[in-house]
Design a protein around this nucleic acid. Structure first.
Lengths: 192, 192
DNA sequence: ATCGGTCACTTTCATTATGGAAGCGACTCT
DNA sequence: AGAGTCGCTTCCATAATGAAAGTGACCGAT
């Protein structure tokens, strides 16, 4: 990937993707979050070529997603531990998990996401901490910051036009929010 | 990427990544969510090679993230609209946005994520709809489903061991949840 | 003491993906 | 009439990846 667009370095999504924009990196993070630490644990869990794994672990260390900890000298051997930065990608992984479960279903049921204490089901959704309520992606939009360049303004403008054209299915405020509350109430009563 | 591990097809994250596990796909989705529809809109917004864009759009259509709509015959020309499946990836993009903003800061402030109506700040976090409370990734774990194979059990086992070793920084139940409530209260009062 | 195995790599090489540039056909605008 | 736009496609050099083999220091059993 070689991005040349003006607005790219300003966009947090583009910046995030230079760090975690490939499958292996995210799968390594997944396994690290499941407790994998050593080279061969990752290799077995992923079926990745060892040369690739070496390259990826190195890049992840240099991007500060993982840190090396020596657990043996002669020969020097390292464990790869998640840093706080790496750990903070957990919401991304969980969100992907949920999407994969919903939209790429398979017949088999191999994994379940559960509450650690109760072992009951868990359903991660987005929530807006500022307004203290569930967040529909349609509730949100982009605004230019003080350092916005013309490309950023064009983006913001285009998004507003799209909204005015009615392109956003989940941005009918009242209905969407009512649905959401109803769904929450329903799932609550099911789980009671 | 060529995954050969036993537990892979059973893992929703791995399945999701076969669909959206590269930067261009996610950046195209980002732009589509900002209202981009046509070939040249994507191309300008991304700085992507046109051959790559053709390939990616096709793959995304065949994966049902986008759908083609003809807006002109002679020559046939298409717009690429998000499907519901594609739209449902918005939480992934927003979660990446937030991570990029927090962990890959730059001096400039080009973009802001705001509430569409109030134009006030928005802060997406994960929330558990089943328990109706903010979700720390450490609150969650994996359980084997009825079709789990040995690789899945090994994974689950390893994660439990890692937890028992105390490898999960945000899984101190009481403290974490108290912090979270405090942070929510604080951000509420700031935004009042 | 020797044998096999493990662990974390590195190296090599064939295959595949990608980026850049150019071209193209049917328009539209001046 | 001529230039420009739009959405491609084709071609080719370069870069990324995967598979397989090799390595060197250990360890545990015979």
């Amino acid at each position: 990937m070689k991005v040349t667009d003006d607005s790219s370095p300003l966009c947090p999504v583009a910046r995030a993707l230079t760090c975690v924009g490939d499958s292996w990196t995210l799968l390594i993070l997944r396994d690290a979050m499941q407790g994998a630490r050593r080279f061969d644990e990752f290799q077995r869990g992923l079926g990745i070529a060892s040369s690739m794994l070496t390259r990826r672990l190195e890049r992840m260390v240099s991007n500060e997603l993982l840190e090396k900890r020596c657990y043996q000298r002669h020969p020097p051997r390292y464990e790869y531990h998640l840093t706080a930065k790496g750990h903070d990608l957990a919401p991304v992984i969980l969100t992907l998990y949920r999407w994969g479960e919903q939209h790429l279903p398979i017949e088999a049921d191999g994994f379940r996401l559960v509450d650690r204490r109760t072992q009951g089901p868990v359903e991660p959704i987005l929530y807006d901490r500022c307004h203290d309520r569930p967040l529909s992606p349609g509730d949100v939009c982009l605004a230019p910051g003080p350092d916005a360049n013309p490309a950023v303004h064009a983006r913001v403008e285009r998004m507003r036009n799209a909204f005015e054209r009615g392109d956003f299915p989940d941005s009918q405020p009242a209905a969407a929010r009512a649905d959401c509350r109803a769904a929450m109430a329903a799932s609550d009563s099911i789980n009671e």
